[in-house]
Design a protein around this nucleic acid. Structure first.
Lengths: 244, 244
DNA sequence: GAGTGGTCTAGACCACCCC
DNA sequence: GGGTGGTCTAGACCACTCT
């Protein structure tokens, strides 16, 4: 009678090890860019075979949390690393190789959050957030106007100056300055007509079609930490995606 | 002196087995939806251990070429399968659960290919292609105008009637009627102003912003087989993407 | 040469599905 | 209960990197 209905609750060992490894990553035991201990050491530490540790590490490497390098070791992924510098950037030229953009900061304000952004960040409406904007230029042409929204509590004393000091991607900055590591993100794309200000900043007529990219980015445990909206001029450039 | 420069050429066994499995898939030895032989049988057939076969199958399952089902077997993935019915469709409503679209065919013509489409399909300019169009309606509203381009040689005697007979996704149709299996696709998104005809078909004013999705879809061996352009009205709907 | 991840094997046992 | 994929182990050996 009181038996709970169907509780399978079988969890493979490697998956439990995986969770323990994530804990160590989250707690900062191993920092971005650093190597984690060799597999035999981890196997001893957790009291399992090396094969089981391998399977856990494989899963984390597939999720881009770790980076395996044969002969050298296994490293904590970092947005500062050469491979991940613009890991989430999908804007590429129609022809020719991928181009690295140049970022120009515009402004930063403190604000109260509401509506869909509050929902995306799982904040109560009225919570304090920081909003800042930037312009991304590709090959000298301003193509993307980005606005970021962050929970104020997790980014104390953030200023335009501190952002400007940092060379490198924004996620590398979050990582180094606040220990916030972005793991994955969800994007939703629409087509919109340019309002007056974005049009001016991107150098097009108001009403021109722009690609609107709304993103929610998550840290460990699927906790949302950043919402952003990008307005992109897709002229000679496009948002590239691979479907499998 | 005459030694060729650095030819590592080491290829793991499981990767060779993987290639052999793909051959069997491509040759039609195992058809979409069917089960492939059990792992111990394959291990015996290829003269390797079951673990090695597992690793090969794992790789193919990760690429969505095979589907593992514990206790039942390993199956050849099919666009007709319930899980893969709209595997490549990324248009989802802003709120609420994913909606299955209803397709209405418009027309089909034979044509000569040129320009970027020829390049995408790796065809000589002037080669014969089939072009057909359809309208996709979500919850009763027409939201996507699609145009598909196919190499004529691979789709003999294709007519609107044959397309209309088939209930299910277009890729399921290719699979069942022509044995052409779509494995992966690349998409490039832009924002465009609606031309007169798409505007009429989607029920918006000419010049309205539309999401333009260009796709090249590939079969085994990265051979392109279909090019398509979708013009999407992103009103209450969006193109969803996950970044990892 | 030492240390790291990568491959491959053989075998035991477990979880799931269907008869 | 028999068949399938899934987990876990232990050990041998290979490939890559750096010293």
């Amino acid at each position: 009678m009181s038996t709970p209905p169907t509780l399978p609750a079988f969890r493979p060992l490697y998956d439990q090890i995986r969770a323990l490894l994530i804990q160590s990553l989250e707690s900062g035991e191993w920092k971005p860019g650093e190597a984690i201990p060799p597999e035999p050491d981890l196997a001893a530490r957790f009291g399992v075979s090396q094969g089981t540790v391998r399977k856990a590490i494989d899963a984390l490497a597939a999720d881009n949390l770790l980076l395996r390098r044969q002969g050298k070791g296994t490293f904590v992924a970092s947005h500062a690393g050469p491979d991940h510098r613009h890991r989430f950037l999908r804007i590429v030229p129609d022809e020719g190789p991928k181009v690295a953009p140049v970022s120009t900061l515009i402004d930063l304000v403190r604000d109260k959050v509401s509506g869909p952004v509050a929902r995306a960040l799982q904040l109560r409406p009225g919570s304090s957030v920081i909003r800042f904007r930037r312009l991304l230029a590709f090959a000298g042409r301003p193509l993307v106007l980005d606005e970021m929204v962050l929970p104020a509590t997790q980014f104390p004393r953030l200023t335009l100056e501190r952002l400007a000091e940092h060379t490198g991607s924004i996620y590398a900055f979050y990582e180094e300055a606040y220990g916030v590591r972005m793991i994955r993100a969800e994007e939703r794309l629409r087509s919109v007509a340019a309002e007056a200000e974005p049009a001016r900043r991107l150098g097009v007529e108001p009403g021109s079609p722009l690609l609107c990219v709304d993103r929610t980015a998550y840290t460990y445990g699927n906790v949302p930490v950043e919402w952003r909206r990008g307005l992109c001029l897709t002229d000679g450039y496009g948002y590239f995606n691979e479907l499998a």
